[in-house]
Write a protein that binds this DNA or RNA. Sequence first.
DNA 1: TATTATAGTTAGGCTTGCCTAACTTTGTAA
DNA 2: TTACAAAGTTAGGCAAGCCTAACTATAATA
Lengths: 151, 151
Amino acid sequence: MAEAKNNNLSASLEDYLEAIYNLSGEFNTARSKDIAKLLGVSKSSVTGALRVLKERGLAHYKPYDSITLTKTGRKAAAEIARKHNILKSFFINVLGIETDIAHQAACKAEHTLGAEVISRLLCFIEFVTKHNAKGYDWANKFKKFYKNCKK
Amino acid sequence: MAEAKNNNLSASLEDYLEAIYNLSGEFNTARSKDIAKLLGVSKSSVTGALRVLKERGLAHYKPYDSITLTKTGRKAAAEIARKHNILKSFFINVLGIETDIAHQAACKAEHTLGAEVISRLLCFIEFVTKHNAKGYDWANKFKKFYKNCKK
DNA sequence: TATTATAGTTAGGCTTGCCTAACTTTGTAA
DNA sequence: TTACAAAGTTAGGCAAGCCTAACTATAATA
């Protein structure tokens, strides 16, 4: 039945899933080559990952055929991307981190920190953001603070 | 010369290093058995890690002998522990996360997030903490906010 | 001091994730 | 339509980390 065992994906598999999701956005199908490039990984590593994603019911995959996500896969990917983007924008806009680094960090964060921490952290970011909107300008206050902060 | 190649340690090795550091606190020497227990790992895994820490000039280690950190090792461990503790207390005191989970997350965080993000995050935590001290009670404000926050 | 439990090590094996090199398939352009 | 380049796959290998089972050393006690 190839039904999704939604068992927690490894950080690496989530990266692949998200990459496919993002690349698919434009064309609805992702190419192995582009996934490899996006993740900085060899083509054969992509092939390997695709096999696993298929096994788990998250991607449609047949050798030499086009790559798409299953419904479950898309849902999972969307959720990953959503969290990822919130974190990323916090890193960039509040902490003042450079885009690429922020991206990398956000990619990995969820896995490492775990669901509970991420969930609360996302709330916290929302909290901070709302305060910002209310005219209490965190990002800027922090920016000044950061200059004198040696950690 | 067994001088420390201070090359970035893996997450796992940092865990071992920190474990030894914390266990040594009480007795000045750590036991394999206790490291294993603390990290939830088998005794043989500890042996393996010790060999690597020795190779990297971070721990003194000889089979069946007592385990201590080198000066470099101690320094590195202290730094890991310091960051770790800041993160942990932020997770617990601001985000309201349960101790064990906070501990796990903090352990892994640095690695995943990378030096730049961690450095800024630690500053941010300090920033938040200082505001707290000034009577702007973040932790509490966030606590209320969190109740209505579904992420 | 001999015995035995505990601590620690070694050997061998598994998984994940990556790599390169060689091969196959596909698609494009003479 | 053939020939060649690009995309994709397969085979084989490597490193990090972990495990269990069997062994060895140490230390405690009778």
